[in-house]
Simulated scan of single mutants.
Amino acid sequence: MSCTCDEICATYDHCACILTLDDGKCYCICQSVYAEGPRRTKGVEPRGLGREARVQVSTRNIPLSDLGALLAKWCDFEILVPARALESKVTETLTNVPLESAIKELGMMIADPQ
């Protein structure tokens, strides 16, 4: 099964897809610059993902702030997005990586538990 921006959100400007490799579930959000909010979603949002969850991540031209907000809903830990990078656009493909590594490679950080 393909879970990439090119396959699922081909005609949209902004995209984020995540495939949780443990259960094979795919979730994508596709947005257009001409529309408010999500234009298309596919799949069921993952919830409670731990740092070591193996994932595949595909993004295209999505603001880091939006990506951070999406991932924060899916994780069981807090994600931090650098203020200077909030509006930077992310286009990346990561395959079979721990979620913690994906978050760091995408330009975000994980908050220390208190």
Score class of each variant (00 low, 15 high):
Met1Ile: 14
Ser2Glu: 15
Ser2Ile: 13
Cys3Phe: 05
Cys3Ile: 04
Cys3Lys: 06
Thr4Asn: 02
Thr4Asp: 01
Thr4Phe: 01
Cys5Glu: 07
Asp6Trp: 06
Asp6Gly: 14
Cys9Gln: 12
Ala10Val: 10
Thr11Gln: 14
Thr11Cys: 09
Tyr12Ala: 15
Tyr12Lys: 15
His14Ser: 09
Cys15Ser: 10
Ala16Arg: 05
Ala16Asp: 09
Cys17Val: 09
Ile18Tyr: 07
Leu21Glu: 15
Leu21Ala: 14
Asp22Thr: 13
Asp22Phe: 00
Asp23Thr: 13
Asp23Leu: 03
Gly24Arg: 11
Gly24Ser: 12
Lys25Cys: 02
Cys26Gln: 08
Cys26Ala: 06
Cys26Arg: 10
Cys28Ala: 07
Ile29Glu: 15
Ile29Gly: 06
Cys30Ser: 07
Ser32Glu: 07
Ser32Tyr: 02
Ser32Phe: 00
Tyr34Ile: 15
Glu36Thr: 15
Gly37Ser: 07
Pro38Gly: 05
Pro38Cys: 03
Pro38Lys: 11
Pro38Met: 11
Arg39Phe: 04
Arg39His: 12
Arg40Thr: 12
Thr41Tyr: 02
Thr41His: 08
Thr41Lys: 13
Lys42Trp: 12
Gly43Tyr: 01
Gly43Asn: 02
Gly43Met: 01
Gly43Pro: 08
Gly43Cys: 00
Val44Thr: 12
Glu45Val: 07
Pro46Asp: 08
Gly48Pro: 02
Leu49Met: 15
Leu49Gln: 11
Leu49Thr: 09
Leu49Glu: 11
Gly50Val: 02
Glu52Arg: 13
Glu52Pro: 05
Ala53Ser: 07
Val55Ala: 09
Val55His: 07
Gln56Phe: 08
Gln56Asp: 15
Gln56Tyr: 12
Val57Met: 07
Val57Ser: 03
Val57Gly: 04
Ser58Met: 04
Thr59Trp: 08
Ile62His: 06
Ile62Tyr: 05
Ile62Thr: 06
Pro63Val: 10
Leu64His: 02
Leu64Ser: 01
Leu64Ala: 01
Ser65Pro: 06
Asp66Gly: 09
Asp66Thr: 14
Asp66Pro: 05
Gly68Gln: 03
Gly68Lys: 09
Leu70Trp: 03
Leu70Glu: 01
Leu71Thr: 02
Leu71Lys: 00
Ala72Phe: 00
Ala72Lys: 10
Lys73Met: 00
Cys75Pro: 07
Asp76Cys: 00
Asp76Glu: 04
Phe77Ala: 00
Glu78Trp: 04
Ile79Trp: 05
Leu80Asn: 15
Val81Glu: 03
Val81Ser: 03
Pro82Ser: 06
Ala83Cys: 08
Ala83Ser: 13
Ala83Ile: 13
Ala83Gly: 09
Ala85His: 05
Leu86Thr: 13
Glu87Phe: 02
Ser88Tyr: 03
Lys89Gln: 15
Lys89Pro: 09
Lys89Asp: 13
Val90Thr: 07
Thr91Lys: 11
Glu92Gln: 14
Glu92Ser: 10
Thr95His: 09
Thr95Cys: 05
Thr95Val: 13
Asn96Gly: 11
Asn96Ser: 14
Asn96Gln: 14
Pro98Phe: 01
Leu99His: 12
Leu99Asp: 11
Leu99Ile: 12
Glu100Asn: 08
Ser101Cys: 06
Ala102Cys: 03
Ile103Phe: 06
Lys104Glu: 08
Glu105His: 12
Glu105Tyr: 10
Glu105Ser: 14
Leu106Glu: 14
Leu106Pro: 11
Gly107Cys: 06
Gly107Ala: 08
Met108Asp: 04
Met108Trp: 03
Ile110Trp: 04
Asp112Trp: 09
Pro113Val: 07
Pro113Gln: 07
Pro113Ser: 05
Gln114Glu: 14
